[in-house]
Nucleic acid binder design. Sequence first.
DNA 1: CGATTTTTTGAATCATATCAACGTACGTGG
DNA 2: CCACGTACGTTGATATGATTCAAAAAATCG
Lengths: 194, 194
Amino acid sequence: MYNAFFDYLKKYSSKPLSGEDKAMIRRNFTPLRLKRKEYFLQAGDICMDYGFIVKGAMRMYSVDDKGLEHVVRLGLEEWWMGDRESFFNRTPSRYHIDALEPCELLIVKKEGDAELINSIPAYTEMEMKLYQAAEIANNKRLTSSLTDTAGKRYADLIERYPAFAVRFPQHIIASYLGISKDTLSRVIRNNKLK
Amino acid sequence: MYNAFFDYLKKYSSKPLSGEDKAMIRRNFTPLRLKRKEYFLQAGDICMDYGFIVKGAMRMYSVDDKGLEHVVRLGLEEWWMGDRESFFNRTPSRYHIDALEPCELLIVKKEGDAELINSIPAYTEMEMKLYQAAEIANNKRLTSSLTDTAGKRYADLIERYPAFAVRFPQHIIASYLGISKDTLSRVIRNNKLK
DNA sequence: CGATTTTTTGAATCATATCAACGTACGTGG
DNA sequence: CCACGTACGTTGATATGATTCAAAAAATCG
């Protein structure tokens, strides 16, 4: 369980990880299992735990006043899941997070994360890189949503994350891309004819 | 010039700033003036400097294969400007950045930024908060671009940043929102009638 | 002041949404 | 392990919000 996370840390940081460091990580991260469809966070609650996905598939989404769901983030193995705003500011979340497959997570509390940042350089470096990567990815997603057609957005997404097409149902991906399931269905059919 | 930055740091960090710290900041940040329309960065170049805007208005934009400009970020006083991806990874940028008004910046190089992060806790805290705030803001912008109409997107933007309506021409804001200048013009007229 | 930039407006067109209906597949409990 | 029920994907018809293009009016800069 924890080894998956240590491997991940090694991948994202050049700095070494002592036995002491590993012990501290074990102390601050606790395992959590979720059944399919189980909630990790519900709108209105404060996101007290930030989760590292060891295994499984998750989605974060909002529900608007008309009752429509809007997927804002998807997560698979080695991704993080949680509402950063709620987690850091201790404010009620506007999002739901649930498991689309049975999941294994390692979760950390705000204080635990802070302790690790202050104590373990490799962890700090990972977190910094994560923020940078997130900002870059978000920018790409944003510009593509502003300028590209539905077809191109889907093609780009699947090219970047081929696993998405297999792990997530189409209507979830459609929602993530901000297009209707009907349009996505048509778009996929047409792309394949080419 | 530097005082504006020290004030900003105080605002974003609870940690104290010694005279020594301030001296190090002065060493690593250099002033830069830009005339109206002058470039801070051109696509193809590597973003060697990251800029803190002391005074002025700037925009970051890409130019697509059809020659159309797409504004990806806007900046006013106390905002940062630069292409993070290019800056950190030393890769050629896909963006142009220019001054929409005469600007005064404080610019820092990658090494300077790294030195400050390693040496000055207040600076590190500010940078962390910045990343968190940026991620949250990006998420909001993203979800609004996916789910809201042009009119709501404009209204939300101006509610959040009233200065934008005054400081940036409409067609720049339209591009930032990912809508055509024509549509934005109509939308504003209709909103005002209400 | 003149030149350039910015905004406005109408008409035609396009991409995507919406709604409803149907067929299929799949997981879950017995 | 099967059958049922829910979830998922497809498709057509229609509606709608936004784009594009062109041209003129208004505002702003130096």
